[in-house]
Amino acid sequence: MGTAQRKEKEKEIRRNDIIDAAEKVFFSKGFDATTMDDVAREAEFSKRTIYVYFNSKDQIYFEIMVRGYKILIEMMETEIQYTNGKNALDKIKQMGKVLYKFSQEYMYYFMTIIEYENGELDFANGISDKSRQECYALGEKIFTYLTSALKSGVEEGSIRYELDIVNTAIILWSCIVGIFTTLHRKRNYIMNYHNRESNELLLNAFDMLIRSIENGGIAK
């Protein structure tokens, strides 16, 4: 390995060390309460060194989302292999189950993505184009799984033909984000006042969303 390659590898290791440290602080304190001083302290680097690698706290947040999206995509692609031969509605249901499994096994990554979906970081300053575009590309890959399933459903007749594919995908994703957010933040309230388990409500919500797009589902 030449000198240039070794330096580049060392730079990448240090960069990942900073992201690792930021994860620990973000996941324990929350993004808003975390400062770059906190990240530097956890990483055992000076704050000046942190800024050599990252323009802002927001950029690090995007890098953490990239890690989460990659895990979710790997889970999606693994499960998609087992849905060959099934209709589109079954595929969409399976995607919902994968998302639920991801939320349980990788809760902090999941909440990082959900918090972003509920925030306004898209056009925040201090986020490099590379970090932003990589994150967007991964998010759109997941979105494509959904639009592809919807398109297949319309073609095979299991999903209502009059639905606009992109509009429907955006609405479904927005509903799912809202459901997860509410059930996560109001879990105790829902249990204490309505005696309902969040996990059960989540599965019911998935069924309702599926019925809303199913061909003939509304009339049932």
Rank of each mutant, 00 (worst) to 15 (best):
residue 78 T to M: 06
residue 189 Y to W: 11
residue 37 D to R: 11
residue 71 I to P: 03
residue 16 N to Q: 15
residue 157 G to L: 13
residue 201 L to W: 06
residue 93 K to G: 14
residue 58 D to F: 11
residue 86 K to E: 09
residue 54 F to S: 01
residue 49 T to Q: 12
residue 85 G to D: 04
residue 168 T to L: 11
residue 95 M to W: 07
residue 134 E to V: 07
residue 102 F to W: 13
residue 176 I to C: 06
residue 209 L to H: 02
residue 81 Q to T: 04
residue 207 D to R: 08
residue 70 K to M: 09
residue 155 E to N: 10
residue 42 E to D: 13
residue 47 K to M: 09
residue 110 F to W: 07
residue 108 Y to P: 02
residue 110 F to P: 01
residue 21 A to E: 12
residue 62 F to Q: 01
residue 141 K to P: 06
residue 199 N to K: 12
residue 121 L to K: 06
residue 29 K to C: 07
residue 135 C to G: 00
residue 96 G to Q: 09
residue 197 E to A: 14
residue 30 G to P: 08
residue 62 F to G: 01
residue 152 S to T: 15
residue 49 T to D: 00
residue 215 N to E: 15
residue 167 N to K: 11
residue 98 V to K: 02
residue 31 F to E: 05
residue 198 S to F: 02
residue 148 S to D: 14
residue 96 G to H: 14
residue 52 V to K: 09
residue 189 Y to D: 08
residue 87 N to C: 08
residue 55 N to M: 05
residue 12 E to V: 02
residue 34 T to N: 05
residue 191 M to T: 00
residue 180 F to G: 06
residue 28 S to D: 10
residue 56 S to D: 07
residue 50 I to V: 15
residue 188 N to Y: 04
residue 178 G to V: 12
residue 133 Q to A: 11
residue 192 N to F: 09
residue 205 A to S: 13
residue 87 N to S: 09
residue 7 K to M: 13
residue 125 N to C: 02
residue 171 I to H: 03
residue 177 V to G: 05
residue 75 M to D: 08
residue 68 G to N: 13
residue 14 R to P: 00
residue 171 I to M: 13
residue 151 K to G: 09
residue 97 K to R: 12
residue 59 Q to G: 06
residue 126 G to E: 09
residue 217 G to W: 03
residue 151 K to V: 13
residue 98 V to A: 03
residue 93 K to Y: 15
residue 207 D to V: 12
